[in-house]
Computed example of a mutant assay.
Amino acid sequence: MARNARSAAQGCIFCAIAVRQAEASVVHEDETIVVFMDLNPVTPGHLLVVPRKHAVGLEDLDRVTSAHVWSVGHDMAQALRRSRMGCEGINVLLCDGEAAFQTVFHFHLHVIPRYAGDGWTVKAKSLKRERSLLDSDAQAIKDAIASTD
């Protein structure tokens, strides 16, 4: 585990929820993940899809678990749409790292039902980027991909 994930697991609330040592309103679970209601929801029905095995972020998550988390997130979005909660949209959000607004350092995927006028916004100031800079960014990412093969 990278970034001291093992030591971070001690005292981790999501690890405690995963082994039923802490209270949570569980929606779904299997041997790999647990899905529960966010204690501080953005909107009613806000879910967290959490791997049972401690991982701080994407770098610490194996591909099989990652794929399963996203697949279950998809299932939960469908369930929210079909539920009597009456949501009109879904946001799927991953906060990986403090700069990305991660506050609990155990990997988790937010599945957030949206309702007209619910008051939650995601507004970013985006500026057009020059093609040469986009090409340079693309090359940096390609180089990183090549280094992981």
Rank of each mutant, 00 (worst) to 15 (best):
V69F: 02
V27H: 02
V49N: 02
V34D: 01
K125A: 08
R63K: 02
V19A: 04
I33V: 12
E31P: 00
H108T: 07
Q139K: 02
F107E: 08
S126A: 14
D60L: 06
V72Y: 02
V50H: 12
V50L: 10
H108C: 14
P41C: 13
F14V: 08
E29S: 00
R20I: 10
H68F: 04
A16T: 08
M1H: 13
S7P: 10
V50C: 10
A138P: 00
P41Q: 09
A67S: 13
I90G: 07
C15H: 15
G97T: 11
W70Y: 04
T103G: 13
E31S: 02
R63Q: 05
R81Y: 05
G11T: 09
R84V: 10
M76P: 09
V26M: 00
I33H: 00
V111M: 07
G45F: 07
A8V: 15
V26T: 05
D149P: 00
A55W: 08
A124K: 14
D149Q: 02
K125W: 11
T121Y: 11
S66N: 03
L80Q: 15
R81G: 09
R114Q: 12
A146R: 04
A140V: 05
S147N: 04
Q78H: 15
A77M: 06
A8F: 13
S7V: 15
Y115D: 12
K142R: 04
I33M: 00
H106M: 11
V26K: 02
G97K: 04
I112S: 05
A5K: 11
R82C: 07
C95G: 05
T103H: 12
V111H: 10
Q139N: 01
T43S: 11
V72W: 02
F101A: 15
R20V: 10
L39F: 13
G117P: 06
F101V: 04
P44G: 09
R20T: 12
D135V: 00
L58T: 09
A55V: 08
A79E: 14
P113L: 14
G89H: 13
